[in-house]
Design a binder for these strands. Structure first.
Lengths: 97, 97
DNA sequence: AAAACACTTAAGCGTAAGCTTTACTATAAG
DNA sequence: CTTATAGTAAAGCTTACGCTTAAGTGTTTT
């Protein structure tokens, strides 16, 4: 039940992968189990588990077990870390570059 | 003078690398030449050129030549693409996950 | 013209990332 | 108790990535 660190480094790294972005996209609509997340992705369950680990370690999602099922949900606060980095860069660009 | 495409895929991919984020950070403060960008990074000039190519192809920076010098600057619009993706995910997370 | 400068390009190298298969654990259902 | 379900863990494979070195191009400076 510990929370993981959402560093700029780890969050951008995690979201660089299209599968992981697809996972985040799905989970942002509705929390879901690992198997449910896996279905539309077309890769092995083991691969999905690995992606979910990456996303959890950087704090982009959190999970908890209900019996033998692991439920996953997006943690918006980790996304803010990346958003803030981006807006900071964007806002410090002067009109002349 | 063509503009490159800033897809979610290419922008997140580009920003996943710490060197490239450092480059964007520096350029967001002030436009600079390739050599100037290279100085604080501690890697070869050739490596920096490769990073700059990646950043330019995804539209995060633009460049133009002034004589033998290539000047680089951040393109805020490409950053917005990533910001919008993030805020879209964040905003569709319901209170219950 | 010669030298220095600012890249640019190509080749190659080592590591890391994403995936698969296989085997295993824990929970739930029959 | 047996079987099915849901996930976990480990090993190995392939490819992509970031980096270096070396050689080459175009532009200033001397």
């Amino acid at each position: 039940m510990q929370s993981y660190q959402a560093s700029v480094e780890s969050v951008f790294r995690a979201l660089a992968d299209p599968m992981r972005r697809a996972i985040v996209k799905q989970l942002s609509r509705k929390q879901a189990s690992v198997s449910t997340v896996a279905k539309p992705l077309g890769i092995s369950l083991a691969a999905v588990v690995q992606h979910i680990q990456v996303l959890e370690e950087c704090g982009v999602i959190s999970t908890h077990k209900e019996g033998r099922v692991r439920m996953c949900q997006v943690e918006p606060r980790a996304l803010v870390v990346a958003e803030q980095w981006l807006s900071a860069r964007r806002n410090s660009v002067s009109p002349t570059g």
